[in-house]
Write a protein that binds this DNA or RNA. Sequence first.
DNA 1: ACAGTTTTTATGTATGTACATAATGTCATT
DNA 2: AATGACATTATGTACATACATAAAAACTGT
Lengths: 233, 233
Amino acid sequence: MNKPSFRNWQSVQEEVLRRIHARVWKPGELIPNEADLALEFGCARTTVNRALQSLAESGLLDRRRKAGTRVAAQPVAKATLDITVIRIEIEDRGQKYGYQRIERHEAVPPLAISGSMKTHATRPLLHVRALHMADDTPYAFEDRWINPEVARDGFSESYETVSANEWLLKYVPYTHGEIAFSATSASPEEAKILCCQKNSALFAIDRLTWDGTLAVTKVRLLFAPGHQIRTIL
Amino acid sequence: MNKPSFRNWQSVQEEVLRRIHARVWKPGELIPNEADLALEFGCARTTVNRALQSLAESGLLDRRRKAGTRVAAQPVAKATLDITVIRIEIEDRGQKYGYQRIERHEAVPPLAISGSMKTHATRPLLHVRALHMADDTPYAFEDRWINPEVARDGFSESYETVSANEWLLKYVPYTHGEIAFSATSASPEEAKILCCQKNSALFAIDRLTWDGTLAVTKVRLLFAPGHQIRTIL
DNA sequence: ACAGTTTTTATGTATGTACATAATGTCATT
DNA sequence: AATGACATTATGTACATACATAAAAACTGT
């Protein structure tokens, strides 16, 4: 019965993970403290700490000073979705990317938009609508409002050949953002653009990015029917 | 012009993040090496390393030995979704949780199910269907197949009062899983269960969990119209 | 000019130590 | 019994150091 020694923090993490999944340490249970684990694993406490910290970050452990470390009672699985530029997303699948600008104009947005972007209700914003295509079939419809006050350079861009999706990410600073996923029925117009049946169920991503207290841009992406995003747990 | 010293790795991370967002270091650009940054920030290299490593993990930096650290050219935003037990999800919103088992029986699953679960095509699995409710209105419809070979204890459970969603997470070990999000049209039966219009656009989550090479359970969750999941970036 | 080898360099990570911090428990005082 | 002071303990984190590792760059011999 030789004790396998764990040389790096990842291997410690794996072992701890194994014990959690195998229910050696059950949900809600207290696990041994760092010093003891370090002793058992034959490594420094720092190493154990790094491993446990990483697991706590991903929600599998609850740690509190003095109180100790316990397996999360409600194992929150954190699904991490990689939100990337649509062009890359398509090219990564080995498909040909296509882009087509549908519309670009300045307009006073609906109240729902100016409200969530916290811009003045009468203030005109830049409105860009475009279609992303994969292998010449519609992939996603992008409907975007841009705050010209913040994205100054973005205002003069035509978005005819390079998508706002890509341009903004590359050139416009932002500090934080919100993202939401939902399902919605295709309106007649959306159906036409995406070449699908009216009322088809579409996967929607809404994103709103901020630079400090000012909204940079708000975008809705509607994906063609059948689209799904997947990840491993 | 006093140089603010950065005492902990989080503050270093914040400063680096600020510089990325403010485009002091532009996408694709090489940033100073750890030693130099440590000098500038007045802290140890370890501290800088911890900060940069954390940022690399979240996709904002690309790091390669010897080559150095550069701002990700394609800033992959990682949206982290907390997938928790539905009861908790509802209670966290301050709503009353309700649960109702619709069906529980043993059956040979459709090929699509046995195929993805890699069980024998003729092997019967446990099929459980149930409705989760929030404040007495339908919230999500759960349609689940359980592999009795793996989830032995789960097989004898009736799931009449406690959902399989909750029971399995608590008592059945697993090693890894897959999750997918999509949009789908409500079938007549699903519409009836969720009390919505036929063909409504529904948000769907499909999850498949494994214990080693054996599938534990495969579940589809259909959420009532209007449901959205959101997170910050 | 080319292929193979060595050096250099930036990141990756373990370690011992030291101290900070938060939560808990203990104990004396009232 | 309630209050407050203090000790204890587990985690949180910084630091200096040492060495590992990957990859680029420089060098070498043919």
